[in-house]
Each structure stands twice: as C-alpha cells, then as structure tokens.
C-alpha cells in the first residue's frame, strides 16, 4: 500500500509537488495523470526514494520513506525513459539488478527466465542493450523493475515507445500484477489509463486536482444529464410530457433533419436522473416515433482538460 500525506518538493523556490495526499491500496492500479511539468515524475521519484520530500510523509507498506533502504526493497521502480546499462547485454543487465537486490544465483536465474518471458525478451536476452529498439529497452526496464518481486510497483510512463501489440501485452501484464500488488503508473495516454487503472488521480502544477475511479471523476465533472433525441411526430407534446415528469428539464430543438424529423436536446441539472426513461415513456404515451437517442457523456479527456486547463 502507498500512503502519502501532504508531500511537497521544492526546487529552489518553486514547488514541483505541493501538499499531495493520496492512498493506493494493495491489489489496485492507480493512474497518475497530469500535463508536462505537473509533478508526476517528481512524485514518483519521491516515492521511489530517489528524492527526499521537502515536507510531508509517505509510507510504502507501512514503512516510512525515512527508512529508505527498506522502502527500496519493497518498491520496483521504472524511471522515465527506462534507463539501462547500454554496454551490457540484457542478461548481464538483469543479473546486475538482481544481484543488487540480493537475489541468490538460483533465484536470479529463475527470475530472469520468468521476467524475460513475461516481457517478451527471450529472443534478445544475449544482445547488447544499445543495439535494441526503444520498445525493447522499455521492456528491459520493466523486467528489471519486477525482478525482485516487489510489493509495490512505481512505473513512470511504462508503455512509451512500445508498438500497439506490445502495449496491449504490457497493459495486460500490469493488470495481472495489479491484482496482487500495489501499482502506481503515470501515462499521457488517457485511454490506456482508463483501460488499466482501477483509480486515477489528476495533478496540475504539483497539486492534486481530482482522485477517484473513472466513473467518479466523470460524474463529478458532469454538470447534469444531457440527452440527444431524434423524434418524428408530436415533438412539442413529448417535450411537455417530459417536463411534466421532470419539472427542471429544459428542451431545445437544435435541428430539423427532414420535414417531420426533429433533433432535440433534453437537459436536466441532476446528473443521476434517468432522462432516457422519461423520454421513452413520453414518446410512447404521445404516439411519437423515437428514431434515435443517446446521452452526452463526459470523457476522461474532458475531465483532464477542465482540471488542467490544457488539451489532453
């Protein structure tokens, strides 16, 4: 489990991270979102014990960051750009990482075989890292971060540079790991975060803007229920019928498709209200044909854009 309490980090007089508090539970994948320079990598560096926080505290599996050697044993960290020893081959690199974590020779061998299989590295195990593509280097970094079977994984943009097939494989791997371990990952790819993460948090200028599941974030940003409807027949009667059921509902005719088809938008300030049910009942009651109906959904991109003030 990761528990951060008001962690801040100053670079000179500028806050890179400010009063950040959050919790990532075991068996959960948490996505860390934010525009460039928002403080994502700094947050991860603090939790991986690379940088000490200027103030605040954090615990990994109940161990305070002050006990940094113990924390590092429990954390598997993939830094941004997945650095690795380019002069070594993949096997030698992974051996080095394993030995630094104190793995015995027999365990090390088994772990290298297991992780190279999980990350698809078997074919390049004896090739020098400098000869590998960016995607393979990323996979080497991932394998290295998981080699010592850590309780907690901190992955800074783990799928950068991977091709679509590799991305799917790595996402599946992270999801599998997330069932038992605590995973915190950052990404710029919002659909990826939606797919992989159980919960997500959005930070901007080093401060937490929102935290929760995808549905919670979207729900929070929803200003109400919006329903787009295409009707043929007694449009006004349907609108009045719906307004009779929900007094606060507003109706707007936005277009006439053909002579007898109208496009309407029903809006209600309550985001939890079931407008579709009311419109369907009204159309049936008024003998009007319902041709099309879809709710306007707030996407994660919209939430991200609103909270960070930048395009996703």
């Amino acid at each position: 489990m990761i528990q951060a309490e008001k962690i801040s980090r100053l670079y000179g007089a500028t806050y890179a991270v400010r009063d950040l508090s959050f919790q990532v539970r075991r068996g959960e994948v948490m996505g860390l979102l934010g525009p460039n320079g928002a403080g994502k990598s700094t947050t991860m560096k603090i939790l991986a014990c690379f940088l000490p926080p200027s103030s605040g505290t954090a615990e990994i599996d109940g161990v305070s960051l002050n006990n940094d050697l113990e924390v590092r044993r429990r954390v598997g960290y993939l830094p941004e750009h997945a650095p690795s020893y380019h002069d070594l081959n993949v096997f030698a690199h992974l051996s080095f990482i394993g030995r630094m974590h104190g793995l015995s020779a027999a365990t090390l061998q088994d772990k290298i075989v297991e992780m190279s299989a999980a990350c698809g590295l078997q074919s390049v195990l004896h090739r020098r890292i400098e000869e590998l593509s960016k995607g393979y280097r990323q996979r080497v970094g991932l394998a290295a971060s998981m080699l010592h079977d850590p309780e907690c994984l901190i992955l800074d943009e783990p799928t950068t540079g991977l091709d679509p097939n590799q991305m799917i494989e790595i996402r599946q791997l992270i999801r599998r790991l997330g069932e038992k371990k605590t995973v915190l990952l950052s990404s710029h790819i919002l659909p990826e975060v939606e797919m992989v993460c159980d919960r997500m948090m959005i930070i901007n200028d080093g401060e937490l803007q929102a935290i929760g599941t995808h549905d919670e974030l979207v729900q929070k940003e929803n200003s109400g229920s919006v329903l787009h409807v295409c009707l043929r027949g007694h449009v006004d009667a349907v609108a009045k019928h719906v307004q009779k059921l929900h007094a606060d509902c507003t109706v707007e005719v936005i277009a006439q498709r053909q002579a007898d088809q109208s496009l309407l938008v029903f809006r209600h300030p309550n985001p939890t209200i079931h407008l579709a049910e009311a419109v369907f009942s009204a159309a049936v009651a008024e003998g009007t044909i319902l041709l099309e109906m879809y709710p306007e959904r707030t996407s994660l991109e919209d939430v991200f854009h609103r909270l960070t003030g930048e395009a996703a």
């Binding site: 560096k45 991986a48 014990c49 690379f50 050697l69 954390v75 960290y77 830094p79 650095p83 974590h101």
Partner: peptide
C-alpha cells in the same frame, strides 16, 4: 548522463 544513476540509487543500496 545516461540516467542509470537513478536506477542505481533506487535499489536497496547505500
């Protein structure tokens, strides 16, 4: 320069 220092010091090594 290559960023492996970050990798090195985030392992359980003093």
């Amino acid at each position: 320069r290559s960023g492996t220092f970050e990798l090195l010091v985030t392992m359980p090594v003093s």
